[in-house]
Design a binder for these strands. Structure first.
Lengths: 213, 213
DNA sequence: ATTTTAACAGACTGACCAGTCGGTTAAAGA
DNA sequence: TCTTTAACCGACTGGTCAGTCTGTTAAAAT
């Protein structure tokens, strides 16, 4: 049982504290106390409290951006790509729920340079979704009544909001929630024709995982 | 052009400041300066900075709870009620966007008693949505594959998230966004049969408002 | 007209907290 | 072995900020 490096311990502790109490309500003194280090240890590993916040942000956005790009490259129809993107996003909560909470609750408190850096990656993620929906509408798989941006933001909202209520101890597992969300999204965006055509595909994809119930 | 009462001026100013910079990054000194009053004026009208935050929270949740109850009472099928609830929620952004932002970003910083009070009303709103979806499934209008709670939270997520991106100066008006969101929600939850049956109803409801495009 | 009280004004204070700085320890290089 | 440097320690500081307190003004009450 090797002891984790100080930097990791600080990040792990801070994550949980930020999630529960918010960035401003957590003092550096408390972080160092609960992670078993000291002011010296903290400022040796981080330039500032800000930099710690940035580290948390960056590790999350980098991970999820990678997942989205992966989903895009692994499949070749908009329906499959959307399905996989939504699914992988929700599945991510299992590991990254505290990151997501901090990401969406505390990004306001990043200093300018850090914020801009995060914003760039966040925009890339957004653009990927826009393109995905756009291509879906263009090829006739997605309904053209629903505009690209609004639909994308609706999907983001639905999935992101999970951080506000998901508990590991809850009635539904992450996998189940992911399945329900993909179901809702696909029903909302697919045309009737595409819906019937891809019915079997979605069944195939789902059957690789545990089924709902 | 009568001057607004001090209390109102403080609330209006604080709302915009909290929205832009977050509760902790806004000092009481700044609020009193920008609202043209003084420390004395502030603490005459509010017991604490906390109480001001509570006031903002309460005015919003009271308003939206009222709207939801109204939507429930004015209509008598789950489909119509859901349609109206989603619509009225999104429409509310026109007036209450800063309130919503503060409500969802800063509620963590409410002191316990205030928080519990808000939480009670928030739960009532949630329960209303649960009941609505439940009744929709029970009477066969809504698809039974999608569980009540998850579906409700998905709808909340979609609509609430609007505060993260909506700008008055944006491409789409609130009314248009509301129409698109109801479209997405209804497509996601209605059964094929209910969808065809209520098609004309939704058209009727929409035509009372400006149409999209 | 006089008293009372509500509605402010603004200087001041005490607590809190991010970041500093002069140390110490121990591992790695030479 | 001796030196260097990375990794830490924790007392201290300087600035910030919510809330207080001693007033002042003017409207309402009697």
């Amino acid at each position: 049982m090797k002891k984790k490096p100080t930097k990791e311990r600080i990040i792990d502790t801070a994550l949980l504290l930020f999630e529960e109490y918010g960035f401003h309500a957590v003092t550096v003194d408390r972080i160092v106390k609960e992670s078993g280090t000291s002011k010296g240890g903290f400022y040796h590993n981080f330039k500032s409290k800000d930099e710690l916040l940035y580290t948390v942000h960056d590790s999350f956005i980098t991970y999820i951006l990678d997942k989205a790009e992966d989903a895009y490259n692994r499949y070749d129809t908009p329906a499959e790509r959307l399905y996989e993107t939504v699914k992988s996003f929700v599945m991510m909560f299992e590991l990254y729920r505290p990151h997501v909470t901090v990401f969406y609750q505390e990004s306001l408190y990043l200093s300018k340079e850090y914020f801009d850096n995060i914003k760039r990656k966040r925009n890339r993620y957004k653009q990927m979704m826009f393109r995905l929906v756009e291509e879906g509408i263009a090829c006739g798989e997605f309904r053209k009544e629903i505009p690209v941006q609004i639909t994308s933001m609706a999907i983001f909202g639905m999935t992101n909001w999970t951080y506000k209520w998901y508990k590991e101890t809850g009635e539904y597992s992450i996998k189940e929630i992911a399945n329900i969300y993909t179901d809702i999204v696909m029903n909302a965006v697919l045309t009737k024709e595409a819906s019937m055509k891809t019915e079997y595909v979605r069944f195939f994809l789902s059957s690789n995982q545990d089924s709902i119930v």
